[in-house]
Design a protein around this nucleic acid. Structure first.
Length: 427
RNA sequence: GGUAGGAUACUCAAGUGGCCAACGAGGGCAGACUGUAAAUCUGCUGGGGCAACCCUACACAGGUUCGAAUCCUGUUCCUACCA
């Protein structure tokens, strides 16, 4: 199966320039391809993942991936899909972001030097910064009419909204990205750019510019926007985006996000995100249809994803913790098991002597651990029967935690609702 | 510039002197059922207090009144029509 057939089967091709010509070129041998990302944050999140994983799919088949960090473009701001003008980021922030994201990229594409088609990371600031404004206008700007630029979706949306408008700076963004492609085609023999579907306009500017300036044919391919069956935004949980940085989104929560994917989405996501083949996914699909309650497909998705981003050991810990936390009773649990579970969920520390005498109010513990936002909310949660201490439901608002609630002289396990856990660590 | 209308909680949207921390819908959270689903049903949805109650909040700043989201004055912003 060719790479394009594989992507097609996975539902990962949204749009493609000169599809037949690209297929032919891919048959002839490995090519270099790139995918850009703007360093707007110091971590990637799962929403960024599809194009990067696609880079890896190409790499697995011998092609040479280039990850492009938008040190230059990121300082301008891509208007695509943005309703209003963006705040400019300082150079220090951009540099810091690129540095942080670099290690995350390494878990997705292979940067090891002992293979022929090792991945490379480039920063477009390195070739963009030296170009003078005059040169840019003469060498790049001359190739495009404002008429066609204005017609691009990303610009038109902002032009039509007269309240926000679009600055000249953001208007120029597409030319910068277009120039990137031209530059990489010259300097790195890069022949393909991939990206999210919102990048179509920017990518075609690049293929056009390259053709006009050098006569070479380069290709563009966009991947679909991931949509959840229930209409919510993919990659967002109740507490915000699911980040790849474990300091921002714990491995446990990362794993749980995929475990909790909607039934209707799970097979699609296995195709989008994992490297499992047709046979394996077909097996999971039939298992899922026969017995959805077992959630084999969810487990496979969550494990594959967690393993890819966080590695084998962290995945095992997350699986272990999930088993303990959703296994019911705490009786007979071992100290190690509880400790493992506690290390995966939010912790709050209280002093041992706070439990003495009257005991420590459960209300305070809920707020302290972040499970409830305020004491008033904590009270409602308790009255609503959603609060558990050591997996036993507590409904007295005035309940106090005492030394008898402490397991192994160290832990009290709190839970709000079915899935929100926190550990109270006694010091 | 003129005239008319508008600004209410996460969003939409009622309320036009006390019964308003504010109807209703969506969203969110939780409970029941289940599979850590979906659908459905139920409860909650400004902060503090066990409570009586207190504080903060109906664009902003003042005023009238025992009492204001509601009336008056000024300010800002929106929308429509006219110039």
């Amino acid at each position: 199966m060719t790479i394009l057939e594989d992507l097609e089967w996975r539902g990962l091709i949204n749009d493609c320039t000169a599809r037949d010509a690209l297929a032919k070129r891919l048959d002839e041998g490995p090519i270099s391809l790139y995918c850009g990302f703007d360093p707007t944050a110091d971590s990637l999140h799962v929403g960024n993942l599809v194009p990067l994983i696609a880079l890896r799919r190409f790499q697995n088949l011998g092609h040479k991936p280039i990850a492009l960090a938008g040190g230059a473009t990121g300082s301008i701001g891509d208007p695509s899909g943005k309703k209003s003008e963006r705040q400019l980021l300082t150079k220090e922030v951009l540099d810091h972001n690129i540095e942080s994201v670099k290690s995350q990229l390494a878990s997705i594409v292979d940067f090891s030097e002992d293979i022929d088609n090792t991945a490379r990371l480039v920063d477009n600031a390195s070739w963009m910064a030296p170009i003078s404004f005059l040169d840019f206008l003469r060498d790049v700007g001359k190739h495009f009419t404002v008429n066609s630029m204005v017609a691009k979706e990303s610009v038109r949306a902002r032009m039509e909204d007269r309240d926000v408008g679009i600055s000249y700076t953001e208007f120029s963004y597409m030319l910068l990205q277009g120039y990137d492609f031209y530059h990489l085609s010259q300097a790195e023999d890069c022949e393909l750019q991939i990206g999210g579907s919102d990048q179509w306009g920017n990518i075609t500017i690049g293929t056009e510019l390259t053709r006009k300036k050098s006569g070479a044919t380069v290709f563009g391919l966009t991947l679909p926007l991931i949509t959840n069956a229930d209409g919510t935004k993919f990659g967002k949980s109740e507490s915000g985006a699911i980040w790849l940085d474990p300091a921002r989104t714990s491995v446990y929560l990362f794993y749980q996000y995929f475990i909790n994917v909607d039934d209707r989405d799970v097979i699609r996501y296995l195709k989008y995100f994992t490297f499992l083949g047709q046979d394996e996914i077909a097996t999971l699909e039939s298992q899922h249809e026969e017995n959805p309650g077992a959630r084999e497909a969810h487990r496979a998705l969550a494990c594959e994803m967690t393993r890819l981003i966080h590695g084998e050991d962290a995945t095992e810990d997350a699986v272990k913790a999930s088993k303990i936390l959703f296994g019911g009773d705490l009786d007979g649990i071992s100290e190690n098991a509880l400790q493992d579970a506690a290390s995966e969920i939010p912790n709050a520390t209280i002093a041992a002597n706070a439990l003495d005498g009257e005991g420590y109010p459960l209300l305070d513990a809920l707020v302290e651990s972040g499970l409830s936002q305020s004491r008033g909310q904590a009270k409602k949660d308790i009255q609503g029967g959603s609060v558990n201490v050591n997996n036993i439901r507590i409904q007295e608002v005035q309940a106090k935690l005492t030394p008898s609630d402490v397991h192994f002289e160290k832990y009290i396990l709190l839970r709000r609702g079915k899935k929100n856990y926190a550990a109270l660590v006694i010091k």
